[in-house]
C-alpha cells in the first residue's frame, strides 16, 4: 500500500530525515514512535505532499506520491487520505457538522447539503457525539470532543489511509484511552491502513500492529508490536521504559 525508499528531508543545515525505508501493507496499523523533534510529523507531511522530500521515493498503491500533473490528479490522490491533526485543526469559522462534512460539501464529488449533514451526523455518532453538538463551533468544545470531531472529519469521506498525529497528546488518561479504542475499532471496521505517530506507549499497545522507531533521521527498529517488550534493542528499551540513561540523548 505504502512503500517508502531512501526518503531524505532537510530544513537548511538540519537533516531531519536521513534515508527512511518503510513499507505498510493494506489494512495494517503502523505506529511510528520517537522522541520529540525526531521528524515524525515531517515523515507524515512528506507522504501527504505537505512537505516536498529532498530525495528518495514514496509510492502509494503503485503510484508515486509526488509530482502530480494537475489539480484534479492531486485532489484524487489526497481523497485517499484522512488525517487527524495533533491539535485537531478544526476550522473555527465553521460549525462542527460543517467541519466534518468539509470534503463532502466541496470539490468534484460534492454532495447536497442535507445529505452531507446526514453523513456528518452519522460520523459524529460513530465517534460518540450526539446531534446536539453538530451546530456548535469548535471553540465551544472540550479538547477531547475536538479530537473526536477531528476524527469524524478524518473518516468522513471513507479514506483508504488514515494518519493520526499524536492522537492522545493533551488529553487526560481516560480520554486518551477512549480515543485509542475509537481509533483501533474504526481502523479495523473500515479496513483502512493507518499510520500513527506518538510517544504515548499506551497508544502504541492499543493501536499498533507494527511499530517503527524513528531516531536521528533513520528507522532504528521496526517489528510487530508484540516484540517491543522482548527485543533487546537498547533504543527501544530506553524509550518504552522512559529511562533518562541510554543511547538516546536526553538533551535534544
Amino acid at each position: 500500500m505504502i512503500e517508502i525508499h531512501g526518503l531524505t528531508k532537510s530544513f537548511g543545515p538540519k537533516h531531519v530525515l536521513r534515508g527512511i525505508d518503510l513499507s505498510v501493507v493494506r489494512g495494517e496499523s503502523l505506529v511510528v514512535i520517537g522522541g520529540s523533534g525526531t521528524g515524525k510529523s515531517v515523515l507524515l507531511k512528506c507522504i501527504l505532499g505537505l512537505n516536498a522530500p529532498d530525495g528518495g521515493s514514496i509510492v502509494i498503491d503503485g503510484k508515486p506520491a509526488t509530482g502530480h500533473a494537475g489539480a484534479s490528479e492531486r485532489e484524487e490522490f489526497l481523497s485517499k487520505f484522512g488525517m487527524l491533526f495533533q491539535g485537531a485543526a478544526l476550522f473555527d469559522s465553521l460549525t462542527v457538522w460543517q467541519n466534518v462534512a468539509f470534503r463532502l460539501l466541496r470539490g468534484a464529488n460534492r454532495k447536497p447539503r442535507a445529505e452531507a449533514r446526514a453523513i456528518a451526523l452519522e460520523k459524529l455518532k460513530r465517534v460518540g457525539l450526539g446531534p446536539d453538538v453538530a451546530d456548535l463551533y469548535p471553540a465551544e468544545l472540550s479538547g477531547g470532543m475536538q479530537k473526536r470531531v477531528g476524527l469524524a472529519r478524518a473518516i468522513a469521506a471513507d479514506p483508504q489511509v488514515i494518519f493520526f498525529d499524536e492522537p492522545t497528546t493533551g488529553l487526560d488518561p481516560i480520554m486518551a484511552g477512549v480515543i485509542n479504542e475509537l481509533i483501533r475499532s474504526i481502523v479495523t471496521e473500515m479496513g483502512a491502513t493507518a499510520i500513527t505517530i506518538t510517544h504515548d506507549m499506551t497508544s502504541v499497545r492499543a493501536i499498533a500492529d507494527k511499530v517503527a522507531m524513528l531516531h536521528d533521521g533513520v528507522l532504528r527498529w521496526q517489528g510487530p508490536v508484540a516484540e517491543i517488550d522482548t527485543t533487546d534493542d537498547p533504543y527501544i528499551q530506553q524509550f518504552i521504559h522512559g529511562r533518562a540513561e541510554g543511547p538516546i540523548e536526553a538533551l535534544r
Binding site: F85, R103, G107, R153
Partner: peptide, 17 residues
C-alpha cells in the same frame, strides 16, 4: 493563526487549495 494551528495543512489534506 490557521497556519500555526495546522488548519492550512488540514485544508490541503481535505483536497482544498
Amino acid at each position: 493563526t490557521m497556519k500555526v494551528t495546522e488548519q492550512i495543512d488540514a485544508l490541503v489534506t481535505l483536497s482544498t487549495d
